[in-house]
Amino acid sequence: MRSRVLGASVATVLALSACGGNLDDSASDAGSTFPERAVRVLVGQDAGGSTDLIARALAEPASADLKKPVTVLNKAGANGGVAAKELAGAEADGYTLMVFNGSLAYITPLAVAADEAVDINGFEVVTGVSQDDYVLVANPKTGFKTVKDIVDAKRPITFATTGVGTGSQLCQELLFAQASVDATAVPFNGGAPALTAALGGQVDVAAVQLGEGQSQIKAGKVTPIVTFAAERPAYLPDTPTAQESGYTALVQQSRAIVAPKGAPRETLDRLRAAFQKAFAEQKYKDFNAQRSLTPNEVDGATLLRQWNASRDTYRGLIEKYKIDLSGKS
């Protein structure tokens, strides 16, 4: 057993040293020979988060198909803005990729100054990956089971969000604005603390990603109220969607593999083929199920259409309901 581990680490060392320097000064001719060396996948979030786990779950099988190491590199900051900037500046040769969060493309621009916003159309999309649904959960002590309960309570409520300018904030703001509930947003730093606040009764409700809330919902520690999905997610069949309850609040997190603008078509196709192989792996499918992720393995053009449409829809909605995502309201 031990020798296997040692063997693996020695192999890693050799593979890494064989890949040579990482300064990208020798322009390699891309094409049939791609890849000649390791591929880096940037992740704009810290290790251990949903996006990071997805990247790592994909890197392993993709590297088996490409026969070169695929290394995950965390560059956290500005909701992925730091990594996106690095990607934009990287050589467009397919050796630098990024797992791009949909919220960075279609929600963050609504919350930050124009010069800080990242435009997804300035990148090449290799492939869509998966979608993550948001669910509104309540502390059982509040007695809330449906949106109607919240409205009928006729009292000001507090809701936890996973941060300013996130889907968690957008979906709740939309719901409460339409339901005319006097609600105060309390931003937390990510899904786990927001959920903890709802569990401990610090806030009345919270919207978190399904994968994060699933185990607490199953244990009955929080009550699911609505999901913000297009249709009832297979993982939570008994909870209505916001749409069914009569509110326009379709908000999802979505993820895609993205390369710098101008990467050669053949290289992108080769990468897409490798990720398709990874998507087909049973282990990866199990991971999706475990994490309550819905596959969205579409091609680049379709994904851009989806994301651009989401951005325009959200822009229209927040104008209609006079929501300020920057938190200044």
């Binding site: 890693t12 060392v13 890494l16 040293s17 320097g21 990482n22 300064l23 880096r40 290394t71 590199l73």
Partner: peptide
């Protein structure tokens, strides 16, 4: 750093 830990610090070799 480069060999054992796989740190991505810019390196020549």
């Amino acid at each position: 750093f480069v060999g054992a830990l796989g740190v991505t610090i810019p390196h020549l070799f």
